[in-house]
Simulated assay, not measured.
Amino acid sequence: MAARGVLDSTASNPLGRPRGIWSVLHLDPILLFLLLVLISGGLFVLYSGADRNLDVVKAQGLRFGIAFVVMLVFAQLDPSVFRRWAPWLYGLGLVALIAVIFVGIGAKGAQRWLALPGLPRFQPSELMKLVVPMMAAWYLSRHFLPPRLSRIGVGLAIVLLPMVLIVKQPDLGTSLLVGMAGLFVVFFAGMSWKLISAFVVMVSVAAPVMWFFGMRDYQKQRVLTLLDPQSDPLGAGWNIIQSKTAIGSGGFDGKGWLQGTQSHLEFLPESHTDFIVAVLAEEFGFIGILILLSVYFLIILRCLYIAVTAQDSFSRLVAGALTMTFFIYVFVNVGMVSGLLPVVGVPLPLISYGGTSTVTLMAAFGILMSIQTHRRMITA
């Protein structure tokens, strides 16, 4: 009986090493700690950005609680589960995006949400940020890498189809994020620099066509406002002007928590959502921004380590794409708020007030933790 128990134990753990609590929970302690630091600081800044509205902080705390549960659930699943379900989830996502066009719920001139019986309202486009890279990785990892030109073409088609459907909503910002997530998979699979150069040339040639025939008036206005915010200081340029004023007024060490004038005197719009980094910069200055970006850098560094050490092509491609998508979130939001990029409505990850994007991001971290912890189970 005792010998049999030893054999059963070593069968589940070949080297006979006891499994730690992190292995049992399938969580990466380093990544989890960094996420908790970021989220805690985010709630701290959100209280000020929401003009000391404790209800907003409580609501965001509840969303984080739900997001953590989602992350934990995703972390329990073996990466092979994501690989096996990727085509089905992709097909379901396309059906949902098509349904949004016909029966979706509209708000502020956009039709982006679905309300299904028994479920809360949600944005299918947010889910595609996870599904598209998984589908592209599923297809490309089934063949020898680097892929041939024909398979790169199929991979690009997998990425472009949901992008077109999301643009129809219209939601150019989310469409670009979904596209970037999928394109990172194609790039990491071994896309040659010649093809990358050709793609850049094609985009450059298509840009004028998109300007005249593909972009809506409000999207063109965002680009023009970026180039010259003072052309309409009380209208389209107001957000960027006030954001840059808030960032500049913070100086080196800021005005102090709850002491920001741009946000609390209501000069800065969307101070608890898209422009929350301007609140942080005004109240905590250059030091606060440096600390925030350092935490983001450490999270990205840890995620890249998980991607590099993943044990199969599918896991490496998905982990790399999700990591770079997180980076794009940070890059676009900070660039937007500082006046270096057009205003596209991309929230600051795990800092801005929001629900669906928070859950999506934490689900992505759950996938990364799954890749890391299941790798350990095999090699330990």
Results as ranks from 00 to 15, higher is better:
2 A>V: 10
5 G>A: 15
13 N>K: 10
20 G>R: 03
27 L>W: 11
31 L>N: 13
34 L>M: 12
44 F>A: 09
46 L>Y: 02
54 L>P: 00
57 V>W: 06
60 Q>P: 03
61 G>H: 10
64 F>D: 09
70 V>S: 11
78 D>F: 01
79 P>Q: 06
82 F>P: 01
84 R>D: 08
87 P>K: 04
89 L>N: 06
91 G>R: 07
95 V>A: 15
112 R>L: 01
118 G>W: 03
118 G>S: 13
120 P>F: 06
123 Q>P: 04
128 M>Q: 09
133 P>V: 04
133 P>D: 09
137 A>F: 00
155 G>A: 00
157 A>M: 12
161 L>W: 07
163 M>F: 01
166 I>D: 09
170 P>F: 01
170 P>S: 08
171 D>C: 08
173 G>P: 12
173 G>N: 11
182 G>N: 05
183 L>S: 14
193 W>L: 15
202 M>K: 11
205 V>Q: 06
206 A>W: 02
211 W>T: 04
211 W>Y: 05
212 F>K: 14
212 F>C: 02
221 Q>F: 00
222 R>F: 08
229 P>M: 05
243 S>M: 03
247 I>Q: 10
249 S>H: 06
253 D>R: 03
254 G>E: 13
273 T>N: 12
275 F>K: 01
276 I>C: 03
280 L>Q: 04
281 A>M: 04
282 E>I: 00
283 E>W: 10
286 F>K: 05
290 L>R: 06
292 L>M: 13
294 S>L: 13
297 F>P: 03
297 F>T: 11
300 I>V: 14
307 A>R: 03
310 A>S: 13
326 F>H: 07
333 N>G: 11
342 P>I: 02
349 P>L: 08
353 Y>K: 06
356 T>P: 10
359 V>M: 15
360 T>Y: 08
362 M>T: 04
369 M>T: 05
373 T>I: 02
376 R>K: 12
